[in-house]
Design a protein around this nucleic acid. Structure first.
Lengths: 162, 162
DNA sequence: GTGGTTTACGAACGGCGTAATAATT
DNA sequence: AATTATTACGCCGTTCGTAAACCAC
């Protein structure tokens, strides 16, 4: 089984076209990156890079694998983020600042849905004038603000809880 | 960065609902799988499994991550396969057995395209009666057979070179 | 006691950096 | 001489298996 680190390194080398640059971006030493490439070649049994002049170039197979590697690494990062978000939704505080009309209409419906989906959340609703609602959001006194700015088209700034 | 092995183990545990079964399917020892789960929990900081009676159960976060893990591991496997196929197309031998009518019409066009895309391939064409063409395929004397079985709807058995 | 999971321990491997070497401009 | 990549080496963490302990039916 390939290693994610190997794939990440290959993707970085593909992006920057150089072992040195990839190492810098990954905060690795130059030899580490070189070694990773060698190991990845050994693991796959495929030549992935070519020395060309005093730099290197990916072979066509290297380019193919690098594209897949970017995709895969992206998914891993996304899964990590998603998991963290899921945990954040299990418990925590969500303070909603809304103006009168939204606080009476769409906010209760959204609040009910949120409470149903994530019963562990502590949910508070504050009815404020739009300007004050946004101020609460800005000052960290609320996680969510719901206001109408215009008659048509609304603004719904959203920050995840913690 | 999460480890692919960890993700693979989590996916296997999710599939089989048991550390023991997952270990069997992965050809690991039982303690290894247990240890992997513990490490994955440590790495993510999230409780992923619960002891329940004398078995275990994934938490909701565990189930979420397991779904993503399956997806990711699948992509890694696909990339590996794809890379191997790409290498196979760089060099090797493709022997095509075709009956007279296809050998004169669609096969040359396909052969030209293949030769253009993958110049390293050694390409041979054999014109045979349909039955003999399929026999060559079956006996490993050809990698590809192209025959018409009926007046409408053709059969194009394909095996990748090596 | 049986089936299942976890903890403990030791061996082998992998991954990292620093230092030294090679190759190209 | 300067820049880039590789090889050599030592350290530490990870991963594996076996053996022992733990827990629930």
């Amino acid at each position: 089984m390939l290693s994610l680190v190997h794939l990440k390194v290959l993707a970085a080398v593909a992006r920057h076209g150089s072992v040195t640059e990839a190492a810098k971006q990954l905060h690795y030493s130059q030899p580490s990156v070189s070694h990773h490439l060698a190991r990845l070649e050994a693991a796959t049994g495929v030549k992935l890079v070519q020395r060309i002049g005093r730099g290197i170039r990916l072979t066509s197979e290297g380019q193919l694998l690098a594209r897949r590697a970017s995709e895969i690494v992206g998914r891993v990062d996304a899964a990590t983020t998603e998991l963290a978000a899921q945990v954040g939704l299990q418990s925590g505080r969500v303070r909603v600042a809304a103006n009168a009309s939204t606080a009476a209409t769409i906010v209760p419906r959204a609040a009910a849905a949120l409470a149903r989906e994530h019963p562990g959340l502590e949910l508070s609703l504050f009815e404020r004038h739009p300007v004050d609602a946004l101020a609460m959001l800005r000052h960290g006194e609320a996680e969510v603000a719901v206001v109408f700015r215009h008659a048509r088209g609304g603004g719904v700034p959203l920050r995840p809880p913690r």
